[in-house]
Simulated assay, not measured.
Amino acid sequence: MIPIYKPYMPDNLLPDIEKILYSGNLAYGKYGKLFEQALADYTGNLNILTVSSYNHAMQIVLSTLGLQQGDEIIASPVSCLASNQPFVVKNLKIVWADVNPETGSMCPEDVKKRITSKTKAIFHNHFCGYLGQIDEIRKIGIEHNLIVVDDCIEAFGSEFNGKKMGSNESDIAVFSFQTVRLPNTIDGAAISFKNQNLYEKAKMIRDYGIDRSKFRDVNGEISAECDIEVEGYGALMSEINSLIGIKQMNDIDDLLKKQRQNAIVWNERIAESKQIVPLNLNKETNPNFWVYGVLCEDKKLALEEFRKKGWYATGVHINNNIYSVFKNSEKLIGVSKFMNQFLALPCGWWVQ
C-alpha cells in the first residue's frame, strides 16, 4: 500500500555524520548556523532560529510573548495535537475558533467574535500544509493589536502571494522538521520572526535564557556580571540534526515540485467523481501538498475504497476540542462538518 507519509533522507550522509561524531563538536555550532542560513535564504527572513523539537519551538514562542496563566489565546481545534498541547503546559485559556468547512481553515468572522480584553494572541494553524485566510486573520491581528502566529507545523514551503511561509510578513511562524515533514531533521523545528527584539529574546530563551555574548569572562569562566533575566529551555539543535537539515534543503525544491505535480494528477483522477472533491484552496495560496486533501460525501466508504486500491487514505488528525485536557469541548458546526468529510491521500515525493 502506498503510505501517507514517508521519511526522506538524502544519500551519502554517513561520512559527514561520522566526522561530526568524532570531532568533539556535537552541540549547536558550525552546522547549526549553516542550517539557519539556509532557512533564512529560503524564506527570505534572517530572523530565524532552529530548535531541537517542535514542542520546544512552541514553548519558546509562548515564553517569548510573555504569556501567563489565565491569558486567552485563540486557536483552531482542526490541527495536530502537538500544536495545542503547549497551551496546556502554560495553563493558558484556549478559545477555539470555528473553521470554514470547505477548507478546514480558521474562520475570520468567528475569530472576531471570540476576541476579548484577555486575548493575547491568535494561533493560525495551516492544516496539512493548506494555508488559511492569511490576509483576513492578519488584518484582525493588526486591528486588535494581537500577534498572529502562523502555525506551519505541516506547511514548510507553502506559499502565500508568491512568498514562502516564514517570510518577514508573518509576525511569527513555526515549522516542524519531525520525521515525516520536509525538511526532516529526524526531530527539530524552526521559528521565524518579523520583530528583531522578539527574535533576540527567543534566541536567549532557546538557550536557558543565556546571552552568550556576556556569559563568560576573558578566562572562559562563567561571569557573575551576566544576569539571567528570562525563563529558558535547552532547545538548541545538535550538529548532526543540523547537518541532515542542510542536506535536505539542497533537495527541497525538487521534492516539493514532485508533490505539486502529484496533486495535479490527483485533480485529474477525481475530476469525474461527484462524491469526492478536492479541498478548496484559499486565494493566493500554494500548498506544499504534504498530503492531498479531499472532501467526501461518505468519508468511511471513500477511505475503504482508496485503501482497497492501495492508497493509504486517512483523516490524519482528529479535532482537538474532543480532548478533556483543553477544558473546552465547545461543539463547532464548521469543525464537525469538515472533520466528517475530510480525507487525506498520499501525495508525497515517493508517489509515482
Rank of each mutant, 00 (worst) to 15 (best):
Q196D: 02
K19P: 00
L46M: 00
S76Q: 13
A121T: 01
L13H: 04
F306H: 07
Y292W: 02
E72A: 15
Y8N: 09
F160W: 15
L182C: 13
Q275K: 11
L39I: 08
G220Q: 14
F160L: 04
E225A: 13
N250P: 01
G70Q: 06
G348K: 07
R216Y: 15
E284C: 13
Y208M: 14
L34P: 00
V325F: 01
A263D: 02
I142H: 11
P3I: 05
G245L: 00
G129Y: 03
G232S: 12
G188A: 07
T64R: 02
G234A: 13
I74K: 08
F193K: 03
M9C: 15
D211E: 15
E231S: 07
P15I: 03
Q248G: 04
I2R: 10
N12E: 11
H124G: 03
S192R: 10
S158Q: 13
A271K: 15
E102Y: 14
K19H: 06
E102P: 01
A189D: 01
G104D: 08
Q85H: 10
I205D: 04
V351F: 06
V230C: 12
A190G: 06
G315W: 02
N267S: 04
S242E: 03
S158I: 09
Y130H: 10
V230P: 09
T64C: 06
D71N: 15
M58W: 12
E305F: 03
N280H: 07
V335R: 04
D251E: 15
G104N: 09
V180I: 14
D187I: 11
D11F: 08
V78Q: 12
W349H: 09
N145I: 05
G29E: 08
R114T: 02
N250V: 07
A75H: 04
T116S: 15
I228M: 08
W349L: 04
G209P: 11
N25I: 05
C107G: 05
K300L: 07
N320E: 11
Y31M: 02
W266Q: 06
N197Y: 01
Y199N: 00
Q59K: 13
D207E: 14
A202E: 00
D98A: 14
N197S: 11
L332M: 15
G66R: 01
Y312R: 07
L281M: 05
I228L: 15
K30L: 07
K247L: 06
Q85L: 13
L39E: 07
I252A: 02
M204T: 15
D110C: 12
V95M: 11
N84G: 11
Y199D: 02
S117Y: 03
L92T: 05
S176Y: 11
K308A: 12
K194P: 00
V111G: 06
D135M: 10
I222C: 10
A173Y: 08
S336C: 00
D98R: 13
Y199R: 01
I276T: 10
G310N: 12
P346D: 04
M106V: 13
Q248N: 15
Q196A: 01
Q341L: 00
L46G: 00
G188R: 03
I252T: 01
L343T: 07
A313P: 02
V325W: 05
K299N: 14
A189G: 14
N197P: 00
K308Q: 15
P15C: 07
Y22P: 00
L182I: 14
F193D: 01
